[in-house]
């Protein structure tokens, strides 16, 4: 059975299904239950935006509220994962990663390799990413490139409810540490989602739209900007292929290369800061491996190299827009300066 549900509900459902299936799955985080020790209602919050709401009623003590000590509880989730549990630890905003990053990149990410392949750390760290919430510089970042930079971490960033459910289920079953990035501005976004359990394998991008003229690659919220741009371009007879990466580590190079070899043009849209991000990574890979197929310079659409500004007037300019994506596509379609010279 399939029905339309929001990404927030889909995440809740994935957690519920995996907790039912596997008794080693536990959840922890700040106020993921809420009201602990307080005189009023139990299960008062279910997370700051209600993503885990109702799970306490179903799974009780397998949900652990934590003191405000990310270093300690994220580290504890990692330690428990190395000892047979499958913890899903919520870091309310991924921006708080700064407080506990050592446990993730020096500990969780290293165990398997550094211990000669003898350790497994099946932990999921899930939390909110992205701008557009008027939440300012310390609650709005898209820090995905920090995570993809680290060998040993898997990195997931869904663009819709269907993918969020299947990818979270896969993340929980995966035996490596997974950073699961939830765009806060997609929580309310609804798609058709089957009620039953299903897993979406890592490293398989989703081609959302076929097209022969240009390839647009993105992930997370900006996938929707890319689709809007593709619709606008189609009115001008430019057919864009839109690829939603879904997982950033591992990344589906084959789908990207196959597409660029057909279209000859590439636009990468990334909400992360522009230096050393997914856009530069993908551009470099394509330049190295499919240079001969390119008919035009690769275009990258990103925010400017600034922190996320608070004021709505600035934040709206900060986030890559559909217009910016369409403009980038048009740049790749324009005759190259050399051919202009020849003419």
């Amino acid at each position: 059975m399939s029905r339309k549900i929001s990404m927030k509900t889909a995440i809740n459902e994935a957690l519920d299904l995996e907790m039912r299936r596997d008794p080693t799955v536990i959840l922890m985080g700040e106020d993921i239950v809420g009201g602990t020790g307080a005189p009023g209602e139990d299960d008062a919050w279910g997370g700051v935006l209600g993503v885990t709401k109702g799970l306490f009623a179903k799974h009780g003590d397998r949900l652990l509220d934590t003191p405000l000590s990310e270093s300690a509880y994220i580290g504890a989730a990692i330690g428990a994962a190395a000892c047979g549990m499958r913890p899903v630890a919520e870091l309310m905003f991924m921006d708080f990663m700064g407080v506990c990053f050592d446990q993730i990149f020096n500990q969780a990410a290293k165990f398997r390799y550094m211990f000669g392949g003898k350790a497994e750390t099946p932990v999921v760290i899930r939390g909110m990413v992205g701008a557009g919430f008027r939440a300012a510089a310390q609650h709005s970042q898209m820090l995905t490139p920090l995570f993809t930079h680290i060998p040993g971490l898997k990195v997931v960033c869904p663009s819709n409810a269907y993918d969020a459910k299947g990818l979270l289920i896969q993340s929980i079953r995966d035996n490596d540490p997974v950073i699961f990035c939830e765009h806060k501005n997609l929580y309310g976004h609804e798609t058709e989602v089957p009620a039953e359990s299903y897993a979406i394998p890592f490293g398989e991008a989703n081609v959302l739209r076929d097209g022969d003229h240009v390839t647009i690659v993105s992930y997370g919220l900006t996938v929707h900007r890319a689709m809007e741009a593709a619709d606008a371009l189609a009115r001008d007879k430019v057919e864009a292929e839109v690829i939603d990466l879904r997982t950033l580590s591992p990344i589906d190079w084959d789908t990207i290369i196959d597409s660029v070899e057909r279209t000859g043009r590439l636009v990468v849209v990334d909400e992360a800061h522009p230096r050393c991000n997914l856009a530069t990574d993908i551009s470099a890979f394509v330049a190295q491996n499919a240079f001969g197929a390119l008919k035009a310079g690769i275009q990258m659409v990103t925010p400017p190299h600034t922190p996320v500004p608070f004021s709505p007037s600035l934040e709206d300019l900060y986030i890559p827009s559909a217009e910016a994506v369409a403009a980038a596509v048009r740049r790749t379609m324009a005759p190259s300066p050399r051919s202009t010279l020849a003419a």
């Binding site: 405000l68 008027r134 300012a136 004021s311």
Partner: peptide
């Protein structure tokens, strides 16, 4: 100048080193 908002108001000239969005 509108860059910070409620959670980041600062005025170094008054010795106010900023509200902070990161606990601790």
């Amino acid at each position: 100048r509108g860059k910070g908002g409620s959670m980041h108001i600062a005025d170094l000239s008054k010795g106010m080193m900023g509200a902070n969005g990161i606990l601790g």
